[in-house]
Computed example of a mutant assay.
Amino acid sequence: MDEMWSFVESKQHQRWLWHAIDHQTGKVLAYVLATHEDSALKQLQQLLAPFSIQRFYTDSWGAYLRLLDEQHHTVGKANTQRIERKHLTLRTRIKRLARKTICFSKTEKMHDTVIGLFINRHEFGRAG
């Protein structure tokens, strides 16, 4: 699991893509577009519940440490390289996710729609 920063209209209005991938295959299992708060991780956990995941690999951000069971949680960049690579791919393919760009979303709805459509199309093989 990891989260990726972006913004809507201005950098003060942050939006985060929270997503989880299968550690073995690199396939996206679920994602949430939300704020950088514990509630977003809770939403992602609910989406992941049907997968009965036994081990979570994350960085050391506080929400992971607070909400994930220590016995099933491994912290460290060594295990998050694949998901970090997905971040780079997303930033390359979706201009509005680039850190320094003049292309940005003006509304949360449009921002979430563009990113959601891209993920649905390229990760799940469906549009919408």
Results as ranks from 00 to 15, higher is better:
37 E>D: 10
16 W>R: 11
31 Y>M: 07
19 H>W: 14
60 S>E: 13
55 R>G: 04
57 Y>P: 00
28 V>A: 11
28 V>M: 15
57 Y>R: 00
42 K>P: 01
24 Q>W: 08
34 A>H: 13
30 A>R: 06
20 A>G: 15
40 A>T: 06
46 Q>D: 05
17 L>K: 06
30 A>S: 11
18 W>L: 11
15 R>D: 12
21 I>N: 03
55 R>M: 15
43 Q>L: 08
45 Q>P: 01
48 L>K: 03
17 L>T: 06
52 S>V: 05
15 R>T: 13
49 A>F: 05
46 Q>N: 05
33 L>G: 02
23 H>V: 12
53 I>K: 05
38 D>P: 07
23 H>F: 15
51 F>L: 13
40 A>R: 04
56 F>N: 11
24 Q>M: 07
47 L>C: 04
53 I>H: 04
42 K>I: 13
40 A>Q: 05
60 S>K: 12
24 Q>P: 07
45 Q>G: 01
50 P>W: 00
30 A>E: 09
53 I>M: 01
21 I>Y: 05
28 V>T: 15
43 Q>C: 02
60 S>N: 12
33 L>Y: 01
42 K>A: 07
32 V>G: 05
46 Q>R: 08
54 Q>N: 08
15 R>Q: 14
32 V>P: 02
27 K>V: 06
32 V>T: 00
29 L>Y: 11
15 R>G: 12
